[in-house]
């Protein structure tokens, strides 16, 4: 067994897991954080996207031991009890998700993008979402929601979408 200590969503968590455990399995099964989804399990769909030290990664392609001592942000770390994160709020207001399975990954990919590029072009957003597959709503509303959230996060006045 391997002992793994990770700072998850600002909280230090420890678990003892078999060495072959992925970061995704650690989050879902040991920490009960089921926001990151198990989709393809081979790094194609992006449903398991989380941020490790601020960078978007597929949690299914990282071993839990590789995350030892690092900062992990999952979708559970974005909202507070009172308030959705501005990206989540924008997705809700724009109807950017339908079934929602891809949502946690898409929103975290968007967060990584906006942390680095507060005013991204539509092409930069498309590039940032290339590793996140959505099979119901499509991407148009997501892109609009991310542009909307970017304005909100920059502190610019935003009108609620019609």
């Amino acid at each position: 067994m391997a002992n793994v200590t990770v700072n998850v969503n600002g909280e230090t968590r420890t678990a003892s897991v078999p060495p072959e455990t992925t970061l995704l399995a650690l989050l879902r099964d040991s920490f009960n954080l089921t926001g990151a989804k198990l989709g393809c399990d081979v790094g194609d769909c992006g449903a398991c996207t989380v941020l490790v030290d601020g960078a978007a990664v597929n949690a299914c392609l990282m071993l839990a031991v590789q995350a030892d001592g690092r900062d992990v942000l999952t979708i559970e770390g974005l909202a507070t009890m009172d308030r959705l994160h501005p990206i989540q709020k924008a997705f809700e207001d724009h109807g950017a998700l339908q079934c929602g399975f891809c949502g946690p990954g898409v929103i975290l990919s968007a967060k990584a993008l906006l942390d680095e590029s507060p005013d991204p072009t539509s092409q930069q957003i498309r590039d940032a979402l290339a590793g996140n597959l959505c099979r119901c709503t499509g991407y148009t509303k997501m892109i609009a929601a991310i542009q909307f959230a970017a304005r909100a996060l920059r502190g610019e006045p935003v009108d609620k979408p019609a």
Binding site: G46, V57, N58, L61, S109, D127, A130
Partner: peptide, 9 residues
């Protein structure tokens, strides 16, 4: 190569 997630790892 791949997508953002692949390129980060």
């Amino acid at each position: 190569i791949g997508a953002v997630q692949t390129r980060n790892l």
